Every structure is written in C-alpha cells, then in structure tokens.
Amino acid sequence: MVPRLTDARKELRRAQIAEAAVRCFGRNGLERTSIADITAESGLSAGSIYAHYRNKAELVQAAARAVLIKRAKVLGDYAASDTPPGPDELLARLIAAIDPAEARVGVQTWGEATTDPAIRHIVVDMTERMRAMLHDCVTAWLVRVENHRPDGAGERAAPIAHQLMARYQAELLYTALRSPTEETAP
C-alpha cells in the first residue's frame, strides 16, 4: 500500500517540480523542454509529475506563479515597512533580485503568449498582479514617506507603478538576452 501525501507534502512536491521546470525552461526553452527533461531534473517519476500537473501548460503556469510568489513576498515586505522604499530604490532592489534563468523563462512565456491563449491569460494575469503589488508599494511610499493623503495617493501611484513595471520588464528582457543558456550547462 502506497502512503498518501499530506497537503503540505503535496505543495512541497509541486514546488519541487515547478522549480525543476523553471531550470529546464531556462536552459532548454519552453518548446524544447519535455516532461522527461523535468522528470530527470526533479529526480521524480513521470507518474509523480503527472499526478501534480496535467500537462506542460500547467507547469508553465506553476513556474510563472512561483516567480510571482517570490516577488510578492519581497514587495509585500516593502509595502508593509514603516519607511517603504521610493520608486528608484524599489526598482533597484527588484532588478538586483532578477535570476537569469527566471528572466529567460519569463521572456519565453511572453513570446508563447502571442500565440497560445492559455499562456496569454497567465501572462496577463501575472503582469496585472505584479503591477498591483507595485502600485501598493508606491502608494505606501507616497503616504508614509512623502506624506500624501491616502485618498489621493492611489491615483498618483498608478502611473508610477506602470512605469516601474515597464522598466522592470525591460530589465528582465535585458537580463534574458545577455545571459546565454550555455552558462547553466554543466
């Protein structure tokens, strides 16, 4: 009899698989990565992977969400601090935290989004979530550091958050393009 996985163990296993997928996508590309590649990278069986993800599209979604969760934690901490960083400092911190493999996966996902409606939905959703988190950080900075009134800070933060998002995406693209896939090869 096979022991059942607890919910916590299932989430750890899903995260392990998603992290392996990010590494494979970053090294081989979305199109050239197979489930067999992810199986080898994760050290798990194909059955285990399919028990957690139905297909590669779900893995792409999980990989995108895993990256967003990392950024959400950082941005949430910034927004909650007594003295949130200003836009320039916030952008500098986000750029410093860019992982080249994750940047390559992000850019590849953007490319796939132009032809695959399911991937497009993921990209649009993740982009809007990231922009909303940036908006929260900028709003907190405007209120707590710049002493703006809370009722007007959100409106003022919107174009700043939009610019931050665009600059962050530009840095992701720059990082992806200057980081050849050969650098992760053994």
Score class of each variant (00 low, 15 high):
L173K: 10
C24Q: 12
E146K: 14
D37R: 15
Y53K: 00
V67W: 03
T6Y: 08
V123I: 13
P150D: 06
L173N: 06
E31I: 12
N147D: 09
L90W: 02
D37K: 13
A113M: 09
D37M: 14
T33I: 05
S34T: 15
Q169M: 10
T114W: 13
L164M: 05
V60G: 00
V138L: 00
R14P: 07
I119T: 15
L172D: 03
R65M: 09
H52F: 08
R54K: 13
I122C: 12
I17N: 03
E58T: 01
V105H: 11
G111P: 01
C137S: 06
A170Q: 12
A8S: 13
T114N: 08
G86N: 03
A103M: 07
G111Y: 11
R120T: 06
A158Q: 08
S45P: 02
A20M: 10
A62S: 06
A118I: 13
G111H: 10
R129Y: 01
L173T: 11
T6M: 11
A97N: 10
G43I: 02
A46L: 12
E11I: 14
I35K: 04
K56P: 05
A18V: 12
D77W: 02
A63W: 00
A176D: 03
A15Q: 13
E155V: 14
Y50I: 03
E102D: 13
T181W: 01
G106Y: 09
S179N: 09
A51W: 02
V107T: 12
L44I: 03
L94N: 03
G29D: 02
R13K: 14
Y174C: 06
E146Q: 15
A118F: 13
A97I: 02
T39C: 15
A157K: 00
T127H: 11
R27I: 04
R9N: 04
V143D: 02
A161N: 04
A20S: 15
Y78M: 15
